[in-house]
Design a binder for these strands. Structure first.
Lengths: 153, 153
DNA sequence: TATTGTTATACTCTATAACTATA
DNA sequence: TATAGTTATAGAGTATAACAATA
């Protein structure tokens, strides 16, 4: 079967691990009636502070249009606020409300607990290596040529 | 902000990388009118041969009910076949058709090309380390306790 | 004219559960 | 009674594009 080995195929390994870690955490988040994407929004805002919708979409890997509607939902639930920017009236700034911040802070310990369970028997050095390699991979992926740049047909 | 660093948070790094590598490859697959999940099915069947629906769901990380309908679609497009098992009449075995196999084999070089671009400047050793760590992580995630096992409330 | 964000449409995937047919 | 798979429903997310407001 030529040289293709699924067990060594990076996108397969990556997706499989990402799906599984998401499923596990999702079950916990559901207790707070939060989705994984909502948690990503809370985590990013908590970590980096208020930011524009576009920047938030980039940081969370959520489509702008999806995020816009998600923020509407989260706003209705008093988790985040939307404020029109003073310097650029086209843009809006999204920030945590006090309630959103409180929930984010309550979830963090659980998130860290899940992470430590996932890393289980790995040494701290292996965990660091994994983080470093994933970060580098992500950087490389940003440099991939656009859709048709290499299409010879 | 306590000890939580998003840039070191494994599920975040993992999801971010998985989403980005998927997006890039998706654009290529679309030329064959294939979705990423269809490609996962083709790749698994091509690599491991015919298998039951349940095993295929496990290997591809796709929900059984979702997969059942997906297989119906792929069957209509002559990519896979469904055969009732002889030894257990409840089960069905899914296999590639000749056409499905041909498409899988045509996509493999592209998939490998994408992988090598993603790994870009990484050494072979780093690539191997990443694969090994992801595999180990996935194994650990399988051992995570079920939803409420550790719920003290 | 380009950018930032919102809204609308149709489609796909997920979660859940009811259902069929076997075992 | 349990298992393998199918089907149905509602909800969430995605892709695409049209749109409004502002730069």
């Amino acid at each position: 079967m030529s040289s293709f080995d699924l067990q060594r195929y990076l996108p397969y390994l990556l997706n499989r691990a990402a799906i599984r870690i998401t499923e596990a955490f999702q079950r916990e988040l559901r207790k707070d009636d939060l989705s994984v994407v909502m948690w990503r929004v809370l985590a990013v805002l908590w970590h980096d502070g208020a930011m524009r919708l576009g920047a938030l979409a980039e940081a969370t890997s959520i489509e702008v249009s999806t995020l816009s509607r998600l923020i509407t939902t989260m706003q209705a639930r008093m988790l985040v606020s939307r404020t029109r920017c003073t310097d650029d009236a086209r843009a809006v700034e999204v920030d945590l409300t006090a309630e959103g911040r409180a929930i984010a802070e309550r979830i963090v310990p659980m998130a860290l607990h899940y992470e430590s369970m996932a890393l289980a028997d790995m040494s701290a050095a292996d965990g660091d290596a994994l983080r470093r390699l994933l970060t580098r991979l992500y950087g490389n992926l940003s440099d991939l040529p656009p859709p048709d740049a290499s299409a010879g047909t």
